[in-house]
Amino acid sequence: MAAAEQPRVLVVEDEPAQREVLSYNLEAEGFSVSKAENGEEALLCVDEESPDIIVLDWMLPSVSGIEVCRRLKTRNETRNIPIIMLSARAEEVDRVRGLETGADDYVIKPYSVVELMARVRAQLRRTRPATVGERLEYEDIILDAETHKVSRGGDMLKLGPTEFRLLSTFMEKPGRVWSREQLLDRVWGRDIYVDTRTVDVHIGRLRKALCQHGGEDPVRTVRGAGYALG
């Protein structure tokens, strides 16, 4: 799996042993993991790395997990990142507070690592389905992320790996306009320098691949903004 295809998980946990166990298990499941040990560091990591999901401990030094969650869920650019809250607080009132603050899931310590991995995948299935092998459909286009195959109108299409990742990104959120910078981050990854004009080249290849058996071009150019599917 190419680095840019790996779902990015941010683990925010101040206990070193817990942080390492979580990171080890997530990496073993094929995730790309970043780590933070306090709330301030977590907020900085989110701005720098745009994770696909956050596993967030409630009790943190400096800025608490609840406050980190509240801040992220009130910002347009981060509000859709799923947050799984970890807490030793088992009372219903605490669970409700965590969820009302914006957490997408609430897991009580001690927890089963296997169950937590399943919850991470469940959240990604909702927000980034292609990264966990889901089948995506848009009009007559079908993308099977598990078998890495794409068809349109029943005809199999030949796509390169970069075009496949571009199409996956578009099909996860049809209609959303992606800037070139956002596509570079999502498809190529932040660790690789690629000129924004490279995006245009691969969009052209994707369009050609999607229309190789006929049909209209489903990729829309939004002047001054970027590209969208539909």
Rank of each mutant, 00 (worst) to 15 (best):
T74Q: 03
P161I: 00
R128W: 07
K173H: 14
R89N: 05
P7N: 10
R135P: 12
R71K: 13
P110A: 07
P7V: 09
G39A: 08
I54P: 03
L86N: 10
I141N: 13
R205Y: 15
G39T: 01
L72R: 03
V68E: 08
E139T: 15
I66C: 09
G98T: 00
R165A: 13
R186T: 05
T162K: 09
E37Q: 14
A90V: 10
G175F: 04
H148G: 06
D155C: 13
L166Y: 11
R135Y: 05
V120R: 02
G175Q: 06
E67A: 11
L157T: 10
Y24L: 09
P218T: 03
I192E: 13
A88G: 13
E13D: 04
P16C: 10
C211Y: 08
R121E: 07
A28C: 01
L210S: 11
K109D: 12
W188T: 09
L99H: 03
R152E: 08
T221A: 14
V187E: 04
E48L: 09
R71D: 01
A209C: 06
Q123K: 02
N80C: 13
S50K: 05
G30E: 12
S87C: 13
M1H: 06
V201T: 14
R128S: 10
V132E: 11
K208H: 08
T147G: 06
L166F: 10
I84M: 00
L166K: 13
Y227C: 02
T196K: 15
L72G: 05
N76P: 00
E146F: 14
L166R: 09
E100G: 06
M117W: 06
E91K: 15
L136K: 15
D94W: 15
K109A: 12
I141A: 13
E48M: 11
K149Q: 11
T198Y: 01
V222P: 00
A2F: 14
P110Y: 07
E181K: 11
D191A: 13
L26C: 03
I66W: 05
I53R: 05
L229F: 04
Y24A: 04
E37W: 11
T74E: 05
G98N: 00
V199E: 08
R19E: 15
Y193C: 08
E27W: 00
W188H: 10
D105Y: 00
N38Y: 03
R223F: 08
D14A: 08
Y138E: 12
R135C: 13
K73D: 06
R190P: 12
T169C: 14
F170S: 08
E216D: 13
E5W: 05
R97T: 09
L166D: 02
S32T: 01
A42N: 11
R75L: 06
D52Y: 02
V201I: 15
R152V: 10
D57K: 02
P61A: 07
E146R: 15
S179M: 06
E27A: 02
R152Q: 12
Q18H: 14
S112A: 15
D57L: 04
A122W: 04
